Simulated scan of single mutants.
Amino acid sequence: MSSKRKIALACSVCGSRNYTITENPNRTERLEVKKFCKYCNKHTLHRETK
């Protein structure tokens, strides 16, 4: 039985971890997505953390 691992997306401006996604073992480089940060109050680049 395989378990789904959770990965956090951290804001590149303030560093807060606002979003979680399930891990994709096929992805080699870190995911980078523009998402809304409630602490910065604007859309910023969010990066996958380990």
Rank of each mutant, 00 (worst) to 15 (best):
T28M: 04
Y39Q: 14
T44N: 04
N24L: 03
K42Y: 11
R27A: 07
S16I: 15
C14F: 00
A10E: 07
K42G: 12
E32L: 09
E32V: 14
N26S: 08
C14E: 01
Y19K: 05
H43F: 15
L31S: 01
N41Q: 14
F36Y: 15
L31G: 04
T44P: 03
L9M: 02
K42R: 14
N24C: 06
K38L: 07
H43T: 13
L9Y: 01
L9T: 00
L31C: 00
S12A: 12
T20E: 00
T22H: 05
P25N: 04
L9E: 02
H46Y: 05
K34W: 13
I21P: 00
C11N: 04
K42W: 11
K35P: 01
T22V: 08
R27M: 03
K42D: 09
Y39A: 13
S12N: 08
K35R: 13
E23W: 07
L31A: 02
C37S: 06
S12M: 09
T44S: 05
T22C: 07
L9F: 01
C11K: 10
R17D: 14
R30V: 12
N41V: 13
V33E: 15
C14H: 01
C37E: 06
N26H: 07
E29P: 02
K35V: 03
L9R: 01
V13Y: 14
I21N: 02
K34M: 10
Y39R: 15
T20H: 04
N18F: 05
H46R: 07
E23Y: 06
R27Y: 01
K35A: 11
L9W: 00
E23K: 01
H43C: 12
H43E: 08
K42A: 14
E32M: 10
F36E: 14
L45F: 10
L45W: 08
C37P: 05
K38P: 03
F36R: 13
N24A: 04
Y19W: 02
C14L: 00
T44V: 13
K42H: 13
R17H: 14
E29F: 10
T22G: 06
L31K: 00
A8W: 04
E48Y: 09
Y19C: 05
Y39C: 09
N18H: 07
P25L: 07
N26M: 05
R30F: 14
C40A: 08
S16F: 15
N18Y: 03
H46N: 05
K34F: 12
K34N: 11
E48A: 08
S16V: 15
V13T: 13
R30Q: 14
R47D: 05
E23I: 03
N24M: 01
N18Q: 11
H46C: 01
R30H: 12
R30C: 14
R17V: 10
E32C: 09
N24S: 06
V13D: 11
C14T: 03
H46G: 02
R47S: 09
C40Q: 04
N41W: 09
R47E: 08
N41M: 14
Y39E: 11
L31V: 00
H43R: 11
C37G: 07
R17P: 14
T22A: 07
K42P: 10
R30A: 15
K35T: 03
A8S: 07
E32S: 12
C11Q: 06
C14K: 00
P25E: 01
H46F: 09
L31I: 00
